[in-house]
Computed example of a mutant assay.
Amino acid sequence: MTELHSHVLDPGRNRNGEDPLVPFLLGARHMPVAISVRDVLRLDAHRLQILLVAQRQWRAEQLPFTLCDITESFRTGLQQLGLPPDHFDSQGLKTGEELVQ
């Protein structure tokens, strides 16, 4: 199996430049990824859009795209932006402890 690429999403989006999520996703193209959202304090629409586009791309390539360490504040952010709070649960892991080797 191809190596899993991991990234921890920063607590808030960098408004002075490119969010580190973008270069991570570009560098991890065509490989399984796991993104921890444990530190996200508030999910904004821009970051959600990036995550949804990436989720669709990885799904089209039939590769694992996993959000892990999902917190209640992240779930609340999903709901506030119009998605079910478990939207990313069906994509894989809910906690970092369950990461596949």
Rank of each mutant, 00 (worst) to 15 (best):
M31D: 04
Q101F: 13
L51W: 02
T71H: 11
F65M: 13
P84F: 10
R59L: 08
L78Y: 13
P32E: 08
F88W: 04
H87V: 03
P85M: 08
H87L: 08
A34S: 12
L83T: 02
T95A: 10
A54K: 02
D39V: 07
P11I: 13
D69W: 00
R38N: 07
H30P: 00
R59V: 02
D10V: 01
L83Y: 10
Q91P: 01
L41N: 12
V8I: 15
S90K: 11
V40F: 07
N16L: 09
L43A: 07
Q55M: 13
L67F: 02
P84M: 07
L99V: 08
Q57Y: 07
G77K: 01
N16G: 11
T71G: 09
R47M: 08
D89Y: 02
G27W: 01
H7E: 02
Q62I: 05
R29L: 14
L41F: 09
A34P: 01
Q57T: 12
P32I: 07
T2N: 12
G27V: 03
L25P: 00
V37S: 04
D10N: 04
P64N: 14
Q79L: 15
L26Y: 01
L83M: 11
S73V: 12
H46R: 10
I35W: 00
E3W: 00
V33Q: 11
G12T: 13
R59Y: 03
Q101W: 14
G77N: 05
T71R: 10
E98W: 05
L67N: 03
Q79D: 15
V33K: 04
L48Y: 07
H87Q: 09
P32L: 06
E98A: 15
V100N: 10
R29N: 03
M31G: 06
P64T: 14
E61S: 15
L93M: 07
I50N: 00
S73A: 13
P84K: 15
V100I: 11
F74T: 03
R13Q: 06
Q79A: 15
F24G: 02
L9S: 00
E98C: 08
Q57N: 14
P23V: 08
T95D: 13
R42Y: 15
H5F: 14
M31S: 14
R38P: 00
S6A: 08
R75G: 04
L26S: 07
L63R: 15
E97K: 11
E72K: 05
D86G: 06
R59Q: 10
E18S: 04
I35F: 05
V53H: 05
S90C: 06
R47G: 00
T95I: 04
L43F: 09
K94E: 12
V100Q: 09
V53W: 03
N14Y: 03
I50W: 01
N14K: 03
L81R: 00
L99F: 02
M31F: 06
T95W: 08
P84W: 05
S73F: 01
S73Q: 11
V37I: 13
A60W: 02
L81N: 00
D39F: 09
T2Q: 14
L25H: 02
F74S: 01
S6W: 01
R29M: 09
V22L: 12
P23A: 06
